[in-house]
Nucleic acid binder design. Structure first.
Length: 200
DNA sequence: CTGACGATTCACT
DNA sequence: GTGAATCGTCAGC
C-alpha cells in the first residue's frame, strides 16, 4: 500500500485527479483505530470558474481559505447543519480546486464504521453518499486543514486497477443552482459498484 | 447582530 | 415523491 504523494495532488487538472482517485483507498486512523474504504465516486470542483464551487468567482472566506492553500489537504464542510462533506484540495497554492469524495466501498474497520453510524449490519448505505462516508470514517469539520501526506487521513494505492471503461463520467449531484456548470461531466463513478450513491 | 440557505439524508405519505 | 431536521457560514444591515 503506497500513500499518494504531493505530486499527485498538485497537478493542474482537477478533473483528471478526480477520475484517478476512483479505486484508491481512503484511510483514516487515530486512537489506534484504522478505517478505510475504496473510493468509488468522486466529484471535481474547478475553482473560480465553476459556479458549483464554494470558491466560484474568487469567493475567498475563512471557510474556503484552505482551498486556496497547498494541495493534498482536507477540506471538510458542514452541509444542512448535519452532514460533513470531505474534500481533497488539489492544484497549486492560490488555485482553489477540490475533489469531493461522495462514496467508498468499506474495506477495513467495518465494525468501527457500524458503531459510528449506529447501523446493525453492513449494507450499501453504510458508505454511500458524502454524508455517510464522513460519518463511517469519523471525519468531521475539525479535520479541515489536515495534511493528507501525514498519517491521520490519507489516500493510498494498494495496486487495485480500474480500467477506463469501468469509470463513468456524469453530471454532479445537488448543484442545480450552478446553471450550465451543473451539466458538466465532473462526477466519476465506478461502474456497477453498489456503493455509488443515487442512480447507478 | 440577524436572517436565509445549503456539494444531504432519512422517515414517511 | 415529499418534507423535516439542523447549524455553520456569509451577506447585509
Amino acid at each position: 500500500m503506497v500513500k499518494l504523494e504531493y505530486n499527485f495532488y498538485n497537478r493542474a487538472n482537477v478533473v483528471t485527479i478526480a477520475r484517478e482517485l476512483i479505486g484508491k483507498l481512503l484511510v483514516s486512523q487515530w486512537d489506534g483505530i484504522t478505517t478505510s474504504g475504496r473510493i468509488v465516486e468522486t466529484e471535481a470542483y474547478n475553482g473560480v470558474v465553476d459556479r458549483a464551487s464554494h470558491a466560484w468567482n474568487g469567493r475567498r472566506t475563512a471557510r474556503t481559505e484552505v482551498m486556496f492553500g497547498n494541495a493534498g489537504v482536507a477540506y471538510v464542510y458542514l452541509c444542512y447543519g448535519i452532514h460533513h462533506l470531505f474534500n481533497i484540495v488539489t492544484n497549486v497554492k492560490d488555485i482553489p480546486n477540490a475533489v469531493l469524495i461522495r462514496a467508498v466501498e468499506p474495506v477495513a474497520g467495518i465494525d468501527t464504521m457500524l458503531m459510528r453510524t449506529g447501523k446493525k449490519k453492513l449494507d450499501r448505505t453504510l458508505t454511500s453518499g458524502p454524508g455517510n462516508v464522513t460519518k463511517a470514517l469519523g471525519i468531521i469539520t475539525k479535520h479541515t486543514g489536515v495534511n493528507l501526506l501525514d498519517d491521520m487521513i490519507f489516500v493510498a494505492d494498494d495496486g487495485f486497477k480500474v480500467s477506463n471503461k469501468n469509470i463513468l463520467a456524469t453530471p454532479r449531484i445537488g448543484v442545480d443552482y450552478a446553471g450550465g456548470d451543473a451539466l458538466l461531466p465532473y462526477r466519476f463513478i465506478l461502474k456497477d459498484n453498489v456503493y455509488v450513491s443515487g442512480r447507478n
